[in-house]
């Protein structure tokens, strides 16, 4: 085990997999000489050359489309979209092409593609550098959507994603890059896609979340522990496919469920999690399912007070926990 930053573990996964598998290559805007705007791909062009670390033109649709073609013809592309907000021009390629490649080709073709993108707000990125886009893709069968919260998961899940035979969207919260560090196993290991992680066990209520919010929920859970409320905390890790088994087990255990995400509330991942529990565990519940999410406004406002209002944080989670515990 080595303590590593979230960003370094993503870098290491790319580097190790590129050493292991000659078919793996990186393509995206500023990923080469600059090493990515967040420096995730720093040093890769020096080691692997410009044929495997490709500085692409500003054309997201082409970046993903070319990656799909390369994936279909035997390579393992890892496309980087500079900010998750910029993925929208590529949505046609992701949803109409990548997600349907296997299904429409009688299982003859697959699309082992990874699209990485930093998402999320709270970093004063304003309208187009703050969005959470997972719900758009969560709805689409044929895509896997991974959102790691820890450095260890980031590496293990990215290795799984690259080795996965189908398209995987890999969303990295930009606030986690240089804030979170944890024990990362040395060498080669994978974390399975589609399996949630029980962060802490508790008796009084269950919090289900993913990404940056896992850390805020942990902070809030420690706070509530002092108040005598014990929290079961589930990190989904993958939002497509959801780990139904883990969701139901965690919900049934305490009978009270709080779902937390930064993305807008309406039609978010939390709505599906809530529906799964309502369909299969309604009579195990002692309280209505609660959701704490970003407000339903079109974008993250730029000015600091309204950005703070938008972002879910540990205080807001603690408040929601108290309210649900008291029900």
């Amino acid at each position: 085990m080595t303590v590593k930053l979230y960003i370094d573990s993503i870098h290491d996964a790319l580097q190790e997999e590129m050493r292991r598998d000659q078919g793996v290559f990186v393509v995206g805007e500023d990923v080469g000489v600059r090493g990515g705007v967040f420096r995730v791909t720093q040093g890769l062009i020096e080691e692997f050359g410009e044929m495997r670390v490709i500085d692409a033109p500003l054309a997201e649709s082409a970046i993903v489309g070319v990656a799909i073609g390369a994936a279909a013809y035997g390579l393992k592309p890892v496309a980087e979209i500079q900010f998750a907000d910029f993925i929208l021009p590529a949505v046609n390629q992701i949803i109409s092409e990548a997600a349907k490649m296997r299904y429409r080709s009688n299982n003859d073709w697959s699309c082992p593609l990874v699209v990485r993108a930093p998402y999320g707000g709270g970093v004063h990125g304003a309208l187009y550098h703050s969005q959470s886009v997972e719900a758009l893709f969560h709805h689409v069968p044929g895509l896997k959507v991974v959102m790691p919260a820890t450095a260890a998961d980031a590496k293990g899940l990215l290795l799984s994603a690259i080795r996965d035979p189908d398209p995987v969207l890999f969303f990295e919260h930009k606030a986690l890059y240089r804030w979170v560090k944890d024990d990362v196993p040395d060498g080669d290991y994978t974390v399975p896609i589609g399996k949630a992680r029980l962060v802490r066990e508790g008796e009084d209520l269950t919090v289900i979340t993913y990404g940056l919010m896992v850390h805020y929920a942990e902070e809030a859970a420690r706070e509530l522990e002092k108040e005598g409320v014990s929290i079961e905390l589930l990190d989904l890790r993958t939002v497509s496919p959801l780990d139904r088994e883990a969701i139901l087990a965690a919900a049934k255990k305490t009978g009270k469920v709080l779902i937390v995400h930064e993305d807008n509330k309406t039609g978010g991942v939390g709505a599906e999690v809530s529906a799964i529990i309502a369909e299969e565990a309604l009579f195990d519940l002692d309280a209505p399912i609660a959701r704490l999410c970003g407000p339903d406004i079109p974008a993250m406002p730029f000015n600091p007070p309204q950005e703070r209002f938008y972002m879910v944080n540990s205080e807001k989670i603690a408040q929601a926990m108290r309210k649900l515990a008291a029900f």
Binding site: F86, L88, P89, H124, Y128, F302, P304, Q306
Partner: peptide, 28 residues
């Protein structure tokens, strides 16, 4: 990011809109 801004502080420097002179810009 102030209330008196063109977009009441919601947009910031990449997102300036002034219909008076038909000006707009954006971060994409």
């Amino acid at each position: 990011g102030k209330q008196s801004g063109l977009g009441k502080g919601k947009g910031g420097h990449m997102h300036l809109f002034d219909p008076e002179v038909k000006f707009s810009c954006g971060g994409i």
